Amino acid sequence: MQASDILAKLVGFDSVVGTPNAEIVEWIGAYLKSFGATVDILAGPEGDRSNLFATIGPRDIRGYVLSGHMDVVPANETGWTSNPFVLRADGDRLYGRGTSDMKGFLAASLAAVPMLAASPLMRPIHLAFSYDEEAGCRGVPHLIARLPELCETPLGIIVGEPSNMRAILAHKGKSAARLTLKGRSGHSSRPDLGLNAIHAAAEVLQAAVSTAHSLAQGPFEAEFEPPYSSISVGTIYGGQAINIIPDLCTLEVEARAISGADPAALLLPVHEAAAALERRGFQVQWEELSSYPALSLPRTAHLAGLLAELTGIEPLAAVSYGTEAGLYQRAGLEAIICGPGDIARAHKPNEFILTHELDACQAMIEALGRRCLA
């Protein structure tokens, strides 16, 4: 099958984040087994979602991992000109949800499997496909925990997030949380008898804004845009009517951290402001939504040099979005980002990938396979 044919099949699975993914996992597993790959389907704690890990070549020798996620964001945006879960070709463009982020990488990897399987690999190529990356890399930590039983310590991890086939050495870390404040309702004419959750949330919001202003003063890391850590409140909602004291208010806040900064620690001033409200009678619930560390790979790293040779392009220093690569690095594994497509096309109506981008990715993976012959 050509990469575009495989992509059409993958796009046809509406493997939206947070939903069961048995159909896409079973199809990929059967495809890989047809070429003699060793396949493990690793059920997650949710019970209806699984990671997939497969090996072409010997598992008792150190090799390379191609890492990607099978889930996609929902396709509820207005503006789609065709069914987002049916691949549509228009010239060199292939439209559909997940084409760039990141079923294109999965398709290119799977298209390279026949060549890899027919080669006498001395070092293995592993495929590590995870679930619920779009919810904050929730599936891949379970896969990483199983790696010691699945293979020898990998020489490197190539995470195929869309990067225009240019390797990326670093990204920011992220921590996101949902804060719910519960006060006491009542008539707005007697504010003294209620606890206004929206008013209380304003104090938490001010802590977030003050922290954001402070972070903008440094420390700095010039490779990132912006070159400092940040905090942002993305949603705030509560209340029922103008004449009812609101007893509930919910905020969602995230921190993005430069290398060396703990994203969860950046949220501490916000968390502390919320905790102070408990002493005034409010109930406070803090729910972590996602968390992953920053990635920072030196230019002198083996994987950086290897990807420069395989792609013919010098690596990019950093991007501000995040990936599962930071989690691999935290586990002691060398990781880098390199995949087809463009992140600017992701999470939008009429998401697309170019056929030559798929071809370039498949060629890169096959070149990696040739490196593993000796």
Rank of each mutant, 00 (worst) to 15 (best):
residue 5 D to E: 15
residue 8 A to M: 01
residue 12 G to M: 12
residue 13 F to R: 00
residue 15 S to W: 01
residue 15 S to P: 08
residue 19 T to M: 03
residue 19 T to Q: 09
residue 19 T to R: 13
residue 22 A to H: 14
residue 24 I to C: 02
residue 24 I to E: 00
residue 25 V to I: 14
residue 28 I to R: 02
residue 30 A to C: 09
residue 34 S to M: 08
residue 38 T to D: 14
residue 39 V to A: 08
residue 40 D to N: 15
residue 41 I to P: 00
residue 43 A to M: 08
residue 45 P to N: 04
residue 46 E to R: 10
residue 46 E to S: 11
residue 48 D to E: 10
residue 48 D to S: 10
residue 49 R to P: 10
residue 49 R to G: 10
residue 51 N to Y: 06
residue 52 L to P: 00
residue 56 I to Y: 03
residue 61 I to R: 15
residue 65 V to C: 13
residue 68 G to T: 11
residue 73 V to T: 07
residue 74 P to C: 09
residue 75 A to T: 08
residue 77 E to Q: 15
residue 80 W to N: 01
residue 81 T to N: 10
residue 82 S to V: 09
residue 90 D to R: 04
residue 92 D to R: 12
residue 92 D to W: 04
residue 95 Y to I: 05
residue 95 Y to N: 03
residue 100 S to R: 03
residue 101 D to N: 12
residue 103 K to R: 13
residue 104 G to T: 01
residue 106 L to H: 02
residue 107 A to C: 05
residue 123 R to V: 00
residue 123 R to T: 02
residue 124 P to H: 04
residue 126 H to W: 06
residue 128 A to H: 05
residue 131 Y to E: 11
residue 135 A to L: 14
residue 135 A to V: 08
residue 137 C to G: 09
residue 138 R to Y: 08
residue 138 R to E: 05
residue 139 G to Q: 00
residue 141 P to F: 08
residue 143 L to Y: 11
residue 145 A to Y: 07
residue 145 A to C: 13
residue 146 R to F: 02
residue 147 L to T: 06
residue 147 L to E: 05
residue 148 P to F: 02
residue 149 E to F: 13
residue 151 C to D: 00
residue 153 T to H: 06
residue 156 G to F: 13
residue 156 G to A: 11
residue 156 G to H: 14
residue 162 P to R: 06
residue 162 P to C: 07
residue 163 S to C: 04
residue 171 H to G: 11
residue 172 K to N: 05
residue 173 G to L: 02
residue 178 R to C: 14
residue 186 G to I: 07
residue 187 H to P: 01
residue 188 S to M: 14
residue 196 N to A: 00
residue 201 A to I: 08
residue 205 L to T: 11
residue 211 T to G: 06
residue 216 A to G: 08
residue 216 A to E: 10
residue 218 G to I: 10
residue 220 F to V: 03
residue 222 A to N: 14
residue 223 E to N: 09
residue 225 E to C: 13
residue 225 E to Q: 15
residue 230 S to A: 15
residue 231 I to A: 08
residue 239 G to A: 06
residue 244 I to P: 00
residue 257 A to Q: 02
residue 257 A to H: 03
residue 265 A to T: 07
residue 267 L to D: 02
residue 271 H to Y: 15
residue 272 E to M: 13
residue 275 A to F: 14
residue 276 A to T: 11
residue 280 R to A: 13
residue 287 E to T: 11
residue 288 E to Y: 07
residue 296 S to N: 13
residue 299 R to K: 13
residue 301 A to P: 02
residue 301 A to C: 03
residue 303 L to D: 01
residue 304 A to C: 09
residue 305 G to A: 08
residue 314 E to C: 02
residue 315 P to M: 01
residue 321 Y to G: 04
residue 322 G to N: 12
residue 325 A to C: 01
residue 326 G to H: 03
residue 327 L to H: 06
residue 330 R to G: 12
residue 339 G to I: 08
residue 340 P to M: 10
residue 344 A to N: 14
residue 344 A to W: 07
residue 345 R to L: 14
residue 347 H to W: 10
residue 349 P to V: 11
residue 350 N to V: 09
residue 351 E to F: 12
residue 353 I to N: 09
residue 356 H to K: 06
residue 357 E to N: 05
residue 358 L to D: 01
residue 361 C to W: 02
residue 365 I to P: 14
residue 365 I to E: 10
residue 365 I to W: 04
residue 369 G to T: 07
residue 370 R to N: 12
residue 372 C to I: 08
